[in-house]
Design a protein around this nucleic acid. Structure first.
Lengths: 347, 347
DNA sequence: TTTAGCACTCATCGTTCCGGAGTGCTAAAG
DNA sequence: CTTTAGCACTCCGGAACGATGAGTGCTAAA
C-alpha cells in the first residue's frame, strides 16, 4: 500500500497545481512540471492508479484529476514541505500585531481580522480557560444608603465591579460584616459551590443581611458565568466570495451563515499546537467540503487562545499553516509581555 | 410638476411590484393590478411620462419599468402607507428582545442579529454618548505593597475597575491621601482637563505621590477613551447573498467587505427617530446602489443607540420601516426597565 | 516498463435562432 | 383631448447546435 516515490511526486504536483489554479490537473501539465523526465502517457498510467487508490478524483471522464480528501490528507501528512516565513511575511505579521490593547474581545476581533487578511481566508478566534475561574476577594464600597459598589478580584487577577442597587436600606455598619462574610465563605470556590454555600449559611445569619448577601453572591455568580462563557468571533467571511468554489451564492451563503450563527460548532483544538481538518474530517455537515486549520496560543493567566482558519479543501495548507503558526506565536509573545501586570478587566 | 392622481397610483404599483418581484414591471401587469379600469395602452402613455420625468427607468428599450432613486424617494415620501405591525410581528420582535443582558457589545450583537433575521437584511448597531463621560468618584483598594485596585464610578453610573501594578512600593497610609487627591481634583472633569490638571498639581505634591497619581489618572484617561470609542457591530451580512441583486459574487463581496471593514462610514442619524437614505443619497461610494434605514433608541444614562438596516434600493421600505421602528421602540423599552439599577460595567 | 499514437469523451464557448414580453406609434373611437 | 385597439419593432433569455480543445484510456511498439 506504500506509494512509490514517483507516485508521491505526482500526487504532490497534482495537489500543488490544483491548489494554485483551482482547476483539474492533466497529465501533460504534470509531465512538464515534474523533475524526472517521463512522458505524459506514463503519468496517465500512474494517475489511473492513484485514482483507483482513492487519492485522486475525476470530475468527469475527460477531465484532469483533482485531489480527494484522502489525497490532501496524504499531502499534508507526508508530502507537504514545512514552509518557513519570509522576511516580508514575518514583518507583516508582527506589524499586524501592534494591536492597541483594549478589551479582550476587541483585541480578538482585531487579531482575527489581521490574520484573515494575512491568509486570505475567514478566521475565527476563541479562548478557553484552563482552570475554573473563582473569586479571590470581595470588597464593598458604600455609595449611599440604597446602593453600593461590589468589587471582585478574580483568580485571574482581573477585577470586576458594578454598582449594586440594594433591595433594602443598609446601615453603614452592615457592610463590613457583609464583606467579611463574603471573604470567609465565598472565596476561591467554584460557581456551583457558591450557590450551595449560600443555602447553607441562610439560617445562620439575620435574614436582612442574608438578602444583601445573596444579592452580592448572585452578582458574583453572574459575573463568573459571563466570564466563563466561551466567546467566539469570526472575521473575514467575505474573503470567501473571492474564491472560485464560492462563486455560487448559495454555497457561499450556507458557509457564511454558518460562520455567523453557528460559531459554537466550529472545531476546537484540545491539545497540540496545530490541527488540520480536511473536508469530511469535519464533523459538522456545513464544513464537509471545507478545511480548517487551528492553532493555539497562550494568553497568560489561566487562559489559552484558539485561532482557526476556514477555507476550501483546496486551501494552501503549507502557506496557511506557516503563517498561522507564526501568527499564533506572535500572539503568545504579545500577550506574554502585555498581560502579566497591566490589562483591563470587566464589570 | 405635480403628479396626477393616476400617475401617483401607477408609480406606486410599479414600485411595490418591483419590490416584490425584483423584475421590471410592464404596462399589462400594472393595468391588471390597478383599481381604476384603464387599458395597458393608457398606462404605457403614463409610463412614458413618468420615465421622462425621471421617476422610472428602463433597463433596455423593450423591457418594463424600474423605479429610479427619485421614484423610490417619491414613493417613500408620498405614496408609501405607514404599515403597522401585525400581532405576529410584534410578538416576534418582543420575543427576540429577550436578550440576556450581558455586556453592552454582546447585547448589541445579539440585537443586531435578531433584527437582521426579522427584516431579512444586514443590520448595524452603534451608540453615541450625549454628554461627555466623566469620572464621578475614585476608590483605591490596597492589595499588597506593589499593587492596588482602582475603582472608578463614572458619570453614567457604570463602574470600572482594574488591578494596578504600582511602579513603586507604597506605604499603607499613602492610599487615602491619593484617593483624596483624586476625588478633589480629578472628578467630574473631561478627559482633556484631566491631563492638564495632572500637570498643574505636579509641583504641589511629593514626586513619589505624583508618580502614583499619574498612574491612576492615566488609567482613568484610558478608561474614558475606551468607553468613548464608538463601537459599531454589523450582523446578518450573509442575508445579502439571498437577494437577486447580490447573486453576483463581486458585488456581494464589495458590500460585505465594506460592512466588515468600513463600518465607521456607515451613515448615522443626528436627530429624528428615523431616516431613509436611498441609493445615491448615500455619500459613500460603496452604498450608492443600496438603501439604508436608520432609527435611534434610548439606552438610558446619557447614551443613544443607533440601529440601521442595509439593503438594495429595492428594499421593502414600508415593512422594514415598520419593523425597524417597532424594534427600536422595543429596545428603548428594554433598556428602560433594564438599565436604571442593574447593569454591568467594565474594567 | 515506457511511450507514441489514436480514437473517444465531454465541458466550454460562441453562434444562431426562436419566442415572448414589452414598447412606441398610429389611427380610430369616445 | 383622452383613451384604446392594433401593429411593427426591439431585445432579452433560453434552447439548439457545432466547433474546439483539453484530457483520457487503450493498444501496440520500443
Amino acid at each position: 500500500m506504500e506509494l512509490t516515490e514517483r507516485k508521491r511526486q505526482i500526487l504532490k504536483v497534482v495537489v500543488e497545481d490544483h491548489i494554485r489554479t483551482a482547476e483539474p490537473v492533466g497529465s501533460k501539465t504534470i509531465a512538464a512540471e515534474m523533475t524526472g523526465k517521463v512522458s505524459s502517457a506514463t503519468i496517465r498510467n500512474e494517475l489511473a492508479d492513484l485514482t483507483e487508490m482513492g487519492y485522486l478524483e475525476q470530475p468527469h471522464t475527460s477531465a484532469g484529476r483533482v485531489p480527494s480528501p484522502k489525497g490532501y490528507r496524504f499531502y499534508v501528512n507526508e508530502l507537504m514541505e514545512r514552509q518557513s516565513l519570509s522576511e516580508d511575511e514575518t514583518e507583516r505579521i508582527n506589524e499586524s500585531l501592534q494591536l492597541r490593547g483594549g478589551e479582550m474581545d476587541r483585541m480578538m476581533t482585531q487579531a482575527g481580522k489581521a490574520l484573515s487578511s494575512i491568509v486570505n481566508y475567514p478566521t475565527y478566534m476563541t479562548t478557553t480557560r484552563k482552570r475554573k475561574l473563582t473569586v479571590r476577594r470581595f470588597d464593598l464600597l458604600p455609595v449611599d444608603g440604597g446602593s453600593c459598589i461590589v468589587v471582585m478580584m478574580m483568580s485571574s487577577n482581573r477585577v470586576k465591579s458594578q454598582l449594586l442597587q440594594l433591595q433594602l436600606q443598609v446601615e453603614q455598619d452592615q457592610l463590613p460584616a457583609l464583606v467579611n462574610l463574603l471573604n470567609t465563605h465565598f472565596v476561591n470556590i467554584s460557581l456551583d459551590d457558591m450557590n450551595q454555600r449560600l443555602m447553607s449559611v441562610a439560617d445562620q445569619i439575620p435574614p436582612q443581611l442574608f438578602l444583601l448577601l445573596s444579592q452580592a453572591v448572585n452578582y458574583a455568580v453572574e459575573a463568573l458565568e459571563e466570564a466563563d462563557k466561551r466567546e467566539i468571533v469570526t472575521a473575514g467571511a467575505s474573503q470567501l466570495l473571492k474564491l472560485p468554489e464560492f462563486r455560487d451564492a448559495d454555497k457561499a451563503h450556507d458557509l457564511m451563515s454558518f460562520l455567523a450563527d453557528s460559531k459554537e460548532s466550529l472545531p476546537v483544538l484540545d491539545d497540540g499546537p496545530m490541527k488540520i481538518l480536511i473536508g469530511p474530517e469535519n464533523v459538522d455537515e456545513a464544513l464537509k467540503d471545507t478545511s480548517v486549520i487551528i492553532a493555539s496560543y497562550d494568553i497568560g493567566d489561566d487562559m489559552r487562545g484558539l485561532i482557526g482558519v476556514v477555507g476550501p479543501t483546496r486551501m494552501d495548507y503549507a502557506t496557511v499553516a506557516a503563517r498561522l503558526s507564526g501568527f499564533a506565536e506572535g500572539l503568545t509573545r504579545m500577550f506574554g509581555k502585555n498581560l502579566p501586570p497591566k490589562e483591563d478587566t470587566q464589570s
